[in-house]
Computed example of a mutant assay.
Amino acid sequence: MIISVLAAAVAPGAALLAYFYLKDRYAPEPISMVIRMFLAGALVVFPVMVLQRAVVLAFGENPFLFSFVYSAGVEEFFKWFLLYFLIYKHVEFDEPYDGIVYAVAVSLGFATVENVIYSLLDYKSFSQLLFRAFLPVSGHALFGVVMGFYMGKAKFHTGRPLGLLAVSLAFPVFYHGLYDYILIELKRYWIWLIVPLMVFLWARSLWKVNHANSRSPLRAVYSEDEVKLPT
Rank of each mutant, 00 (worst) to 15 (best):
I87R: 11
I87N: 00
I87Y: 07
K89G: 14
K89F: 14
H90I: 11
E92Q: 13
E92M: 12
E92S: 15
F93V: 07
F93D: 04
E95C: 05
E95M: 06
E95N: 06
P96I: 03
Y97T: 08
D98T: 02
D98L: 01
G99E: 06
Y102C: 05
A103G: 15
V104P: 00
V104Q: 07
V104L: 04
V106A: 12
V106D: 06
S107L: 09
S107W: 03
L108I: 11
F110D: 00
F110M: 08
T112S: 13
T112P: 04
T112F: 07
V113S: 03
V113P: 01
V113W: 08
E114K: 11
E114W: 04
E114T: 06
N115D: 13
N115S: 12
I117G: 06
Y118R: 13
Y118T: 03
S119I: 07
L120P: 05
L121G: 11
L121N: 15
Y123E: 00
K124D: 14
K124Y: 10
K124L: 12
S125Y: 09
S125H: 10
S125M: 01
S125R: 03
S125P: 07
F126A: 14
F126E: 14
S127M: 13
L129T: 02
F131C: 12
R132C: 00
R132Y: 01
V137G: 05
V137A: 10
S138L: 15
H140I: 11
H140Y: 12
A141W: 06
A141V: 10
L142E: 02
V146I: 15
M147R: 09
M147I: 04
G148E: 00
F149Y: 15
F149K: 02
Y150E: 07
M151C: 11
M151L: 13
G152N: 05
K153R: 14
K153D: 01
K155T: 02
K155F: 03
H157L: 09
H157K: 10
T158W: 00
T158G: 09
G159M: 09
R160Q: 12
R160V: 10
L162Y: 12
L162V: 06
L164F: 11
L164D: 00
L164C: 06
L164N: 00
L164I: 07
L165P: 00
L165S: 00
L165R: 06
A166G: 10
S168D: 03
S168Y: 08
L169G: 00
L169C: 09
L169S: 03
L169P: 01
L169D: 04
L169N: 02
A170V: 10
P172C: 07
V173H: 02
V173I: 15
V173C: 04
V173D: 08
F174D: 01
F174S: 01
Y175G: 06
Y175R: 03
G177D: 00
G177S: 11
L178K: 04
Y179W: 14
D180I: 09
I182A: 00
L183M: 13
L183G: 12
I184E: 05
L186G: 02
L186F: 14
L186K: 15
K187V: 04
K187F: 02
R188Q: 13
Y189C: 10
Y189S: 14
Y189K: 10
Y189I: 12
W192N: 08
W192T: 13
L193F: 14
L193E: 00
V195T: 13
P196G: 08
L197R: 04
V199Q: 07
V199N: 06
V199Y: 10
F200H: 13
L201Y: 11
A203K: 14
R204W: 11
